[in-house]
């Protein structure tokens, strides 16, 4: 059973790690909203080292407001979004985007 549903606010974990993982640095610690559930997949963090990737992880397409994410570097109008695939174990529930636009 997936822990999150579309519309839920989630905060991406900010763990820094050298080992293989698929969470881009630019969303670590940021708050986004679950856009869609994308199914269950082997965990790439163990799969990459020869294990079977079990247990499988729920994968989410999480959306971030571009202006919230990049601040003044964002060049588009408000409403432009960035959607990123994130595995469930990188997500925690969040109440609201931070007042500074999503930074932890």
């Amino acid at each position: 059973m997936a822990r999150f549903q579309p519309g839920d606010l989630v905060r991406v974990g900010d763990a820094q790690m050298d080992a293989h993982h698929r969470t881009p640095a630019y969303i670590k610690g940021r708050v986004g909203r679950v856009h869609a559930l994308s199914g269950q997949y082997p965990n790439p963090e163990t799969l990459a080292y020869g294990a079977d990737g079990e247990p499988e992880r729920d994968l989410y397409l999480v959306e971030f407001d571009m202006r919230g994410l990049w601040g003044e570097r964002a060049t588009g109008p408000s409403g432009d979004r960035l959607l990123v695939d994130v595995y469930e174990h990188w997500l925690e529930p969040a109440d609201a985007p931070g007042s500074d636009g999503g930074r932890a």
Binding site: R22, T23, P24, S38, G39, Y41, P44, L59, L61, E63, M66, G76, P77, G79, D80, R81, L82, L83, V84, D85, V86, Y87
Partner: peptide, 14 residues
């Protein structure tokens, strides 16, 4: 133009 832009970062299994 005025169309909303959604960038999708293909980071995982899709």
């Amino acid at each position: 133009g005025d169309t909303e832009v959604r960038v999708v970062d293909s980071t995982a299994d899709l």
